[in-house]
Write a protein that binds this DNA or RNA. Structure first.
Lengths: 266, 266
DNA sequence: CAGTGGTCTAGACCACACT
DNA sequence: GTGTGGTCTAGACCACTGC
C-alpha cells in the first residue's frame, strides 16, 4: 500500500453511471477486468515493467487496483493468452520477451522438411546493408508514415547449414531506430526482435503476413544460390508493437526446396 | 437430475489418491475442470450433441457433474477457445459448426489482394473427379492408415469471379466416407466441411498446413489457366477431427496473382 | 518455511435474448 | 419475467519454487 507507480485507477463500477458517464448512443459497458487489463498494459507501454521483468503478484495488483484477486487474474489471463505476459507457477508473472524465449524465432514459420526441430543449429546471418532513406508510399503506408518520412532499411540473408535460405529486407521508422547501425546489427547475437527490445525499447507483439509465390529474379537468384526463375515464397510482414502501432515492414523471399512454411488452423 | 446421458463422472478429487491411482513416476495431477472438459468432449464425440445443437446450461452441467458452475465455466471456456463450442450470451452454448458460420471457409486463408472481404461472392466450384482408390504410403501415412487402405479422392477447381484460382485434390478414409459420391458433392451448397458434418458425422476441428512455392506443371497450368512454370503456392493440409485423429489430406495449388495467403502471428 | 500462481466453491448481481 | 451466459467477490485450499 505504498505510492502508486500507476496512476490512480478511477475504476468505474459496472453499473454506477458517473458524472462524465458514457455517451448517449454508446453503452460502452466495460467489465472491470478489462479496465485492469488496460492499466497493466499501460505499465507495459510506459516501461514500468520491461521485457523479462517480474511484475507484482496478483494479490499486490489486486490491492493496488482495489479489486479482488480473481479480477486481476482474469486480466492477466488475457494478457498471457496474447503472449504479452508469461505466468510461471510458484515464481510469478513475467513480461514476455523475444530473448531467452527457448523458441529462437517466434515469428518465423519456416521449418525444415526433415528433422524434428529447427535445431539445425542457429541460422547464420549475413547483413548486406543498413542504410537510411526516404521511401515511397508503398513502404511508408503500412508503417503509418507519409511518403518521404525517414526510414532505416536493413537487408540480410539467413542461411541454414550453410545454405542461403531467406533473403529479406526490412524497414523501420527512423525515429525510434535512429541509433541503429550496421555494426550494432553485426555484433548482436540472437533474434533481431530481442535487440529491438534491449536497445530501442520496442517490443513486437504481433504480426500479419501476406504470402505469395514468385519467381526468383536475377539478384535474388544470385543471393539465394538458385537458378533464376526458381519459385520462392514471398512473405510480407507487418509487425506491431503495444498499441497495435505498426513498427516494422519486412519483405522476405524464402527458398522452399528443403523447408516449408508451417501454419496451424483452428 | 434425470438419468445421465453421459456416464457417471467418477470425478477424482484433486488430492484424493484412489485405489488405481496415478503411476509412480507420473504425478498426473488433473484439475477438475479438465475432467469436465473431457466429459463434454465425449458428449461431442459420441454424437450426444451435434454441430449447431444447444448444449445444457452451465448450471445443468454443474448439477450433472456435481461441481460448481465456475468449474463447468472454465471447462467450457477452453472448449470455446478451441472453437469447439460457441457461447452466446442470453441464449446458451452451442456446438460449433462449419455451416451457418458466417465466415464461409473457416480454414481457407486465401484473400483477395484488393477488396475488403472475400465477399467477392461465393466461389464457384467444379468437381473434376471423385474416385475410390488404394493409395501409396505418402497419402495414407498422414491419415494414419496403411498403404493400400481404401481411400476416396476428390479433385476440384475453385474459381473467383470466373478466374480459376485453386486446384486441389483431397483424400478421405474410405470407411467413414463410403457413401460419398460425385453427385453428393455436385448437389451440395456451401462449405465441404459442412457436408461432412451433416452427411457423415465428421466434424473437422483443426488443421495443419505446409506451404511451399512450386512451378505449375502442364496439367495445373491448363486447369488454372496460367502459363506453364507460373509460380504457385503449394498448400498441403491435414485436417483433424475430435481426438486429433487425421481425417483428410488436401493438396492444393493456389494462384497468387490476385490473391495472397494471410496469416496472423502472435 | 513463505510466497506465488492454480483450482474450486458459493453466492450475488449484471447484461442479454426471448416470450 | 425467466433463463442464459458474464462479472465480481471472498475465502479456502492445492501445487510449485526457492529460501
Amino acid at each position: 500500500m505504498t505510492t502508486h507507480p500507476l496512476s490512480d485507477p478511477h475504476l468505474s463500477a459496472p453499473s454506477s453511471p458517473e458524472g462524465a458517464g458514457p455517451a448517449l448512443s454508446a453503452p460502452a459497458f466495460s467489465p472491470l477486468y478489462q479496465q485492469i487489463k488496460s492499466l497493466i498494459l499501460q505499465g507495459l507501454q510506459n516501461g514500468e515493467w520491461k521485457p523479462g521483468d517480474l511484475i507484482p503478484s496478483e494479490l499486490e495488483l489486486a490491492a493496488r487496483f482495489r479489486v479482488s484477486q480473481g479480477t486481476v487474474r482474469k486480466a492477466i489471463d488475457e494478457l498471457a493468452a496474447d503472449n504479452l505476459l508469461v505466468r510461471r507457477q510458484g515464481k510469478g508473472t513475467f513480461v514476455a520477451t523475444h530473448a531467452e524465449q527457448h523458441i529462437q524465432y517466434r515469428f518465423l514459420r519456416l521449418h525444415p522438411d526433415t528433422g524434428t526441430l529447427d535445431s539445425e543449429g542457429p541460422a547464420s546471418r549475413q547483413i548486406l546493408a543498413c542504410r537510411r532513406l526516404r521511401a515511397p508510399a508503398d513502404i511508408t503506408a503500412p508503417l503509418g508514415l507519409r511518403a518521404g518520412d525517414a526510414l532505416i532499411q536493413v537487408s540480410r540473408v539467413l542461411s541454414f547449414h550453410g545454405v542461403p535460405t531467406i533473403l529479406e529486407d526490412l524497414w523501420l521508422p527512423g525515429g525510434p531506430f535512429k541509433a541503429l547501425t550496421l555494426d550494432t546489427l553485426a555484433q548482436h547475437q540472437g533474434p533481431m526482435y530481442a535487440l529491438f527490445e534491449s536497445q530501442f525499447g520496442v517490443r513486437m507483439v504481433r504480426a500479419e503476413e501476406k504470402i505469395k509465390a514468385v519467381s526468383a529474379n536475377a539478384q535474388a537468384a544470385q543471393l539465394l544460390d538458385v537458378p533464376e526463375g526458381t519459385p520462392l515464397l514471398s512473405v510480407e510482414r507487418v509487425a506491431f508493437t503495444y498499441n497495435d502501432a505498426p513498427m516494422e515492414l519486412r519483405r522476405g523471399l524464402y527458398r522452399t526446396d528443403r523447408h516449408h512454411y508451417r501454419n496451424e488452423l483452428s
